[in-house]
Simulated assay, not measured.
Amino acid sequence: MKKSIVILCWLLGSCQSNETTPVSTPETEDTTFYQAYAASSKVPETRRSKILFVKFKSMREIVSDTNSFSTYWRSIHFYPNLNFAYKKGMVTMEFDGQCEYTYPIKVTDKSITVFYDMQEDCTHDIGIKSTFGLKNYPQKGLPFFVLTLVNDTTLQADYLYKDWVNKVNALHPKYPCYVKRFYAKTRDL
């Protein structure tokens, strides 16, 4: 166990860093979270040039079976993540290590529509099955949110039930369940 921690610390550069992970702000929206992270002092100078950034031109590339990088997208909060490789025609939204929901999708060149017909694999209630007394909330089989490319490494989620999303996110103020942006997975070579 100690050997694993030492190796992990060596790979990351330092376990003693007091710096915080970069956060996406309106001023830095053109620079993805991972590009900012790679440029930070958390990644040793000798390894910064070895980080591969994947770039996409269409939504169909994102769900392509031929590109292994295209399947996984992260938020700036570490969770939630989107995984397009779990099942064809589906996206898995990972909320934490013990909770994920899989939704059907419809893909066009310009967008991915996610439908609220979820398959649950969750050990605890995160509040997404609640209606919160609202009249307008996601219902089985109907579109839930739409993903579009902001740039070649960033997906934007436009939720169709904003009040409901705000209620769910209020249950998790430090780590919201539904975020606006997801960033292409990078591979550190």
Rank of each mutant, 00 (worst) to 15 (best):
L149Q: 12
Q139N: 08
T148N: 15
K129R: 12
Y86V: 14
V63N: 02
Y159K: 08
T153N: 14
W73A: 02
K87N: 06
L142F: 12
T148C: 12
N151D: 15
K129G: 11
N67C: 07
M59S: 04
D109F: 02
Q139F: 05
Y79D: 08
S70E: 00
L155V: 10
S64I: 02
F145A: 08
Q156C: 08
G141P: 09
E120R: 14
T154C: 06
Q119E: 13
K162A: 14
N136E: 08
A157E: 06
H124W: 05
D158F: 03
S64Q: 01
Q156R: 14
T148I: 14
T102Y: 00
K55Y: 09
D158L: 08
D158K: 15
I105M: 05
G141N: 09
I76R: 03
C122T: 06
Y86S: 09
D125E: 14
Y86K: 13
N151F: 07
K57H: 09
T148P: 07
E100D: 02
W164E: 04
V91M: 06
K87L: 10
T123L: 13
S58W: 01
K162V: 15
K87T: 08
Y79Q: 00
S68K: 07
V150W: 10
L147E: 10
F56N: 09
A157T: 08
P80M: 03
M90H: 13
I76Y: 00
Q119S: 14
V150H: 12
T131L: 03
N81Y: 00
F78N: 11
E100H: 03
D163I: 03
K87C: 00
